[in-house]
Amino acid sequence: MLEARLPQAKLLKSLLEAIKELVVECNFDCNDSGIAVQAMDSSHVALVALLLRADGFDPYRCDRNLPLGINLTSLNKILKCAGNEDILTIKASDDGDVLNLVFESKDSDRISEYELKLMDIDSEHLGIPDTQYDAVVSMSSGEFQRICRDLSQISDSIVIDVTKEGIKFSASGEVGNGSVTLKQSGSVDREDEATTIELQQAVSLTFSLKYFQYFTKATPLSSRVVLSMSNDVPILVEYKLDNLGYVRYYLAPKIGD
């Protein structure tokens, strides 16, 4: 059986926001080390990999591998019934076909209980190679969100060029073109806003902005985002969750121009 408790329902709500644009239904794979989700979008262009480690919950119990097949639209409906600050407990029995969700107000004077019907989802597991990337850029997640939003006014594609000097995002469309360059900043006062670049060799890649805008739904989960890139391979966009795990997105680049 599974029993996992989070001090704030807000976290699961935010996680759902971060993946529900990409994936309609997926397995939440639970085992004694935590809860993992790996799902590709229907067009096989993007993949989301989510990890919530057991020690991020208090308590967490799961004594065997338990894949919970969940329709995210249905889960979203039930999570709308939770207050952001509610204590959230999820439970599932080994042979059950429902996920129990309990929302408890902080002062424990209101307890609501819901059951979500589970489904059998036959999904293939993908091995993601441990890759050495040519360029790894760590930057403010809010800044990345703003750049994606701003450049989506110009085009549905974004070109990312990374050099020693900085990272340049550019877009070119019918109305004209635009770009935003962030220089590597070593001495800013606010660490959250710094841009750091680890570069083996310069990269230039083109991506669909639509997908980046789906990824930036994860912005509330972390003040930082890490973009890992090599030419001609999928970009890894990672949001680390404090003491809990991560949300990673992989996106295939656009080819030829």
Partner: peptide
Amino acid sequence: TATQGRLDGFFTVL
């Protein structure tokens, strides 16, 4: 114009 690549082939099916 650039065409959208796919993830197939980058990852191995386990």
